[in-house]
Amino acid sequence: MSKCLISNNIRKLRFNHDEMTQQQLAEKTGVTRQTIMAIENGKYSPSLELAFRIARVFHAPLEEVFAYVSEEDSKQTDNKTL
């Protein structure tokens, strides 16, 4: 089974929403700033519930905030770019 990777656009979305800080997003979603930071840096994959809460803050569908990339897909992308 290939390892799954979840990428996100949270940083970009925060910037587009009046330069929202990590702390503000954390307060709106009910988690700590460290958790938002870990999600942004790809160190933590949020639960489905938290992912929906984040998407709701940005008034965006889930797919706009998070994207699923399997290891095989990322390898193929890397090969294409080489």
Binding site: V31, T32, T35, A38, Y44, P46, L50
Partner: peptide
Amino acid sequence: LSTKNDERD
């Protein structure tokens, strides 16, 4: 000190 424990914690 934060006493908040979220899902990651």
